[in-house]
Design a binder for these strands. Structure first.
Lengths: 201, 201, 201, 201
DNA sequence: AATGAATGAGCATTCATTCAT
DNA sequence: TATGAATGAATGCTCATTCAT
């Protein structure tokens, strides 16, 4: 098989993918600061120096893990929400996607919940870009619900959106830290029930 | 000056306090992993070696910051909640305390929201001990409300407690990362309104 | 240049050799405890970190110096003694080799006589392994002489062996510490004369 | 009891003695470089700072241990040898004193055999001063024996003295490093027998 | 004389990154 | 592209020594 053909078959790069996957695994297992570039390279089956052909440095690996996952996450979210009109059902779908996605990949969840928060630098980048977009999707959904009259209007949509995100986020963090394994996705229903209906009888 | 008088004047320990305060400031500004012990010592106005007379190491400073703040936090919470009977009002008080406390000390909030989460090791300690106690206070309040008939009973109290904590937590994290300053405490009312009353019209 | 050619030119390892030689020089000049790894690296013409590619740490350099020299020492001893039958002549040859070898490399002698004794840890390792082998060679030679009837039999061979070793060892130590330089090897004859013939007239 | 009287009763200083004794114990147990001044102070039952009222520093403790022991050693040697005329009997007495003295205090022996040799600095001081005096006593004894006609004259007295010292020294070192305990003093007779009579039948 | 809290210089080791091959 | 040997900057911690009390 010609080189070009092989490239085409394997996507832009075999190695870049392998390094990203290795990064998720290693960072989740040992923590970002305690992980060595050599660990990631070894896990990916490449030489240390090869990492620098695909990434600027250790930080860039973490950054790229986040970027790629978040892009996929948002794309999938938009795709799934397109076909839903009812804002309440959209909220339910977001919860379901959020928890099923992270619940399906514990290592990725650990990187998202723990490692990405270990530095204000990352948090700021996180906050500034893709995270804002994610929150915006939730906010707009709530806003639409308020315009429809389905949701109460005496609540600022951005606050409600953050609450919803925070609630989901906490479910994931608790799930990661829990000593006993349990399925994460089923919690989506509970969260949505309280978020939409409130706690009062 | 007599020994007792000096003690009284300086508190139990001048230096330990100074180092803890310096730790909060430095860790918040530069991140735990990027902070040097020398930075903390210098900020506290003591020699590098002095840090090791009061703490086992860099980790122990972070740990101690958390322990002390959490103990105060929980003690204040219990004290304030004693005089309140209505579970809904207790929930409101918790939100108010949570946001006013962290809203009053941005550096401490940064350490709590960002630095303490940067390692699974700390998260596990965090989760295991004091955090569990905090969550338990919320859970019991909700449970009481359910027994009273004030809160709906088709929701697991622990899930609702995590949601509530997650919502508050997200308010704090967003507040920290926000480029524009704004008061944090006023958000307590909004959070409680949605949590108790739900979003549906 | 082909890999094999380079290997041949550089020997198995250029750097490892250079570091060992530098270690002997630096340890002899400043003492093991007062030598910095950076001193050894600098003397060897490599970066600090490179030392750790070839040795586990500072201790391991000292250990390796000893192991290599002792192995050579013993190998040479066995080789030379093979062709000699007379135990008295073997004793003479041992003294000659011992003093000529150490007398030819003052730095190595310093490391052997001074630095290797600075810790019970090293002394125990020293005693346990190669040193015991060296002493055993001497002991067997004496034993053979006793069986031949050449040596008196009312002396325990192991005691005599230790005495002989101790006498040679003291010659070396005094030679090292002496302010005036003098050749070490010629003392072999004197030592052997007294050891074999005794002091009494 | 008046202060002066107490001083008189306790000797020049209680504390100095205590620190020296503690030094021997601690240095023997952990090695000079691995011993902390604080360890010695604690073992001596004094505060860290007190050590510096009696000694210039850590080095000075080791130095003083050596000086005091060596002075006693030499004084005792001279005292015992005065009453002996026969050089051969004097040689026997030196061996006996050397081995009985060090054999009676394993910690002191460890400090002498191991710790004092860990640095060329100490070895040079050692060599220069008291050790030279000790060797001189042996040398003169041999010289006298040669003049008497009791000892052979074709051997340089200083070489023979070093041999004798080296042989005794090796007995002590082996005794220290031996895993099995055995009495040291009885070896004196063996050493003297070989030294005086030689190994040849 | 005695204390012991405070000091701060000193150093072995790690590991992200480079670059000759 | 890929390698991996080599680099060298960076830092947490120790401990001999000081000095105010």
């Amino acid at each position: 098989m010609a080189k070009a053909a092989k490239q085409a078959k394997n996507g832009i790069s075999d190695k870049r993918e392998a390094i990203l996957r290795a990064g998720v695994k290693v960072f989740a297992a040992k923590g970002f600061f305690n992980s060595k570039v050599a660990d990631v390279a070894s896990e990916a089956g490449v030489a240390d120096g090869t990492v620098y052909l695909y990434f600027k440095g250790k930080d860039d690996i973490l950054h790229s893990i986040f970027d790629r996952a978040m892009a996929e996450f948002i794309a999938e979210g938009r795709r799934e929400l397109e076909h839903i009109d009812d804002p309440a059902k959209q909220i339910a779908k977001i919860a379901e996607l959020h928890l099923s996605r992270l619940g399906a990949d514990r290592s990725l969840a650990v990187v998202f919940q723990i490692e990405l928060r270990g530095s204000t630098k990352f948090m700021e980048a996180f906050s500034a870009a893709a995270f804002a977009e994610y929150l915006e999707i939730i906010r707009k959904t709530i806003e639409r619900g308020q315009k429809d009259g389905a949701f109460r209007s005496d609540v600022k949509p951005i606050i409600a959106a953050k609450m919803f995100y925070g609630a989901l986020d906490e479910m994931v963090t608790n799930w990661i830290l829990s000593k006993k394994p349990y399925p994460l996705e089923p919690l989506a229903g509970e969260v949505v029930k309280v978020f939409l209906g409130g706690l009062n009888a």
